[in-house]
Amino acid sequence: MEFNIYESSRDVFLDTVNTKDYIQLDRVSNIYQSLKDSITKPLKMILLYGKPGTGKSMFLTKLHDSLLSSHAAHLYSTPILDESEFFKTLAQDLYGMEYSGELNFTQFMKVVNNKELNGPVIPLILLDEAQLYSSSMMEKIRLLSDTRKVKFIIALHKTEKEDLIAKEHFQTRIWESIKLENASTTELMIYIQKKLMKANCLDTANMFSIKSINLIHKITDGNYRDTNKLMYTLFDIYLHYQQNNPNQINGSQVSNKIIEMSAIHTGLINA
């Protein structure tokens, strides 16, 4: 298959959570290291929060992958909203026990209390999109962390659930609270260029000037998910022009016009 620079560049920005696509930025890597350090501490829960699209899922996935060699870590990317199913999955992951019937919280607590830890390291459960869990479920997760036989890392959006987490009885159990934020202009430039260079799209990586990055940052506010969407559409439009009207594009610099067209198409600009 023939290599097309715009097509390859476009596919780089497909909105998927893949640790291979993880871009190490200075600020994020500092947060990542502090989170790894806090896992070794005798804490019960770690809270990871931020606006949608700030890279929580990617962050959690990356952490999970790196911990697998040293910890018994289990990532729940999609919330298990059924309570019985949640406890059955926990029993399976923590103790290798399979339940065919129902498993309620009381039964699971009995199991947890009866089981001893295999080693000095407490098993780690990483819960993504934890804002989708109900309040009662969160209370049960809190009680489970009180047994000190399982540790939870909870990633959630900044919603009402966060207020619940912030309540006093939760605060006493959360020992580490980490906030993820949108990228700055410089970080966004590094993010875009590193992502493209990782896919050997050096020509398109060099197309981005500070001015065009500023415009992208103005449109997306440094949100990684929005940036990915915008960049995907941007290269899709470039691909369209290349195939239909190649005279209208300049391969040396990203056109602000096409950036704005991408933003209009993705709904980031209301026009």
């Binding site: 016009k257 600009i269 026009a271």
Partner: peptide, 18 residues
């Protein structure tokens, strides 16, 4: 599906508004 012509028109309108 991209509708480039429509996008170009909308972009021009947006630019004019700005």
């Amino acid at each position: 599906m991209l509708n480039i012509n429509d996008l170009e028109i909308r972009q021009k309108n947006y630019k004019l508004k700005s």
